[in-house]
């Protein structure tokens, strides 16, 4: 008789309910577990990730971009970037079955941030995990104010266009600022409509423009973006007087297991080693100071 392995590395089957093209390289997958029991029990914290397992093809980590307040389904924003994600884009459609395991990682310390203002700084695909916080706030009014700074190359590559355009029109305590490196047609249109909310340049430029208008000193800051972004954003946030103990960031590595075994996400030196999948993916600024290599 074989031993029961509890499907640790397999996960549970889930059906793709919907696939939405967000940009030319990113799609939004809405999934639901086949087992209703799992749907009811599956709970997560914004910032956590799951392993997306495609039978016969492979597996990759992806952060959850829906909110835990909206139950019964799971949304994942997947960029076509590697071997498996390319396959997913081309072959995983409405009705496809994949396997999902998780949630893994620590997630954002939402309790600590309750009723404070929060600044979300997203770069490119980094919008995905931060959308989870954004939706969470829309559903629960968790923060006193939410300031979203979203930097993206151009309008074409902007994620969640519909939702962001809705929020740009003005929504109670949610304030959205966008930065575009290139002004394409869509960006030009947005500038025409919401001149004060759009900056040409990097996300750090947008932060600078809002110096004085956003209560950075009292805010928590949470960032996610491409590896090169962190160093510059952290510097800018500190310059804007965000308290260092209130700076959080979520990082990316190629996890093979998601549970601290495979060693692929190990970062650090002899005095401090971190597993991005277990100790993160959300890290504090203190972590960055004590663990070399966490951000470039």
């Amino acid at each position: 008789m074989g031993d029961n392995l509890k499907n640790t590395y397999l996960g549970a089957p889930a059906r793709v309910l919907e696939v939405e093209n967000l940009t030319s390289i990113e799609k939004l997958y809405t999934l639901r577990f086949l087992d209703n029991d799992i749907n009811n029990k599956f709970n997560f914290i914004p910032g956590q990730f799951v392993m997306f397992n495609v039978p016969g093809i492979g597996e990759f980590p992806v952060s959850i971009c829906s909110s835990p307040t909206r139950t019964g389904y799971l949304q994942l924003c997947i960029r076509r970037a590697g071997r498996v994600t390319k396959y997913v884009h081309e072959n995983i459609v409405e009705g496809s079955i994949v396997y999902i395991r998780g949630p893994y990682g620590n997630g954002f310390p939402l309790e600590e941030m309750k009723n404070s203002p929060i600044v979300l700084v997203a770069g490119g695909l980094g919008m995905a995990p931060l959308r989870s916080i954004l939706l969470y706030h829309l559903d629960t009014q968790h923060f006193s104010d939410l300031y979203l700074f979203y930097g993206v190359r151009n309008y074409e590559l902007m994620l969640f266009k519909r939702e962001i355009r809705t929020l740009l029109r003005g929504y109670y305590n949610v304030h959205v600022y966008l930065s575009f490196e290139d002004i394409d047609r869509g960006a030009r249109e947005l500038i025409r409509l919401y001149r004060k909310s759009i900056v040409r340049g990097m996300v750090t430029d947008a932060l600078e423009v809002l110096r004085g208008s956003v209560p950075f000193e009292e805010s928590y800051a949470v960032m996610c973006g491409p590896p090169v972004m962190y160093k510059f954003v952290v510097k800018k946030l500190l310059d804007l007087k965000v308290r260092p103990d209130r700076i959080y960031m979520t990082l990316e590595r190629r996890m093979k297991c998601g549970i601290g075994k495979c060693g692929h996400c190990i970062v650090g030196t002899s005095t401090s080693i971190k597993y991005v999948c277990l100790d993160g993916p959300v890290f504090t600024y203190w972590d960055v100071l004590s663990t070399k290599g966490l951000i470039e």
Partner: peptide, 15 residues
């Protein structure tokens, strides 16, 4: 670790 037949999956039985 596991076997796949199409999109059906089963864990490899460890003896």
């Amino acid at each position: 670790l596991m076997l796949f037949h199409g999109d059906r999956a089963e864990e490899h039985t460890l003896r």
